[in-house]
Design a protein around this nucleic acid. Sequence first.
DNA 1: TTTATTGTTGAGTT
DNA 2: AAACTCAACAATAA
Length: 276
Amino acid sequence: MPELPEVETVRAGLSALVQGATIQGVTVPYPKVITGDVEQFKAQVLGCTFERFDRRGKYLLFRLSNHHTIVSHLRMEGQYSVEPIEATPHKHTEIIFKLTDDRALMYNDTRRFGRLQLVETGQEGQAVDGLGKLGPEPTAAYLKLDYMVKIFQKSHRMVKPFLLDQSKIAGLGNIYTDEVLWQSKIHPESLTDHLSQEQIAELRTNIIAEIKRAIAEHGTTVHSFSNVFGKVGEFQNKLEAYGRVGEPCHRCGTPMIKFKVAQRGTTICPVCQIKQ
DNA sequence: TTTATTGTTGAGTT
DNA sequence: AAACTCAACAATAA
């Protein structure tokens, strides 16, 4: 499931492989992948060059040479691959950008949840609601401690769904949320306004460090994630909570337990992570 | 056959 | 009004 580090890994791969390439044709075997008018999308991107690949939260932003941007969200299982232009599309290929250098950029999505939308560059926030409402990136430069303390203290929600809320902090999903809560010894059902300033500070430090480490390891492959080169990430070997139900906690040895928090599978150490 | 899984959205509720 | 909750979306594996 691509969260921020996986999306960043895809961005870096696209940047390395496709930056500067020009679109000579587009086919859309699964038209629903496009939000908006498909014919208009095809007409507008034809002949454009991919000038740059940006990312905001879990959204990919393909900057085109005609002052438009393709906003691409991978949702659950979206993947990009670069292939020879005559390559046969996969079973779940939803869009194919044929490039003038005889390669093709394909988007594949077994769950069919991901979407692409063409917007005017600079208007992404207005055109894509979730993108406009994103909270700060989980980095030291953007995620300030006073902001964290402020939003935690004025809310009464459980900390896990709060961290999953992209409008508070951008980019965290189910995996990294379980990881940082384990690292911070915080129970996922603790209320945000019951946490001490020290706990919020530690949580912030762990979020920033964890995202940075996961990006350095090219993301986590739990189900199907692979980057543009078809390679899996390396971070799944370093997970301390997610997927470790029944296995001993790496701090205290207690078997990890799993239950639902706000409809999401959640793995914790029942000894280390005590509800506040 | 049923259930769990995942991120975001939009409808509905407090 | 703003904050929050939850079902829906699609496909697959167990």
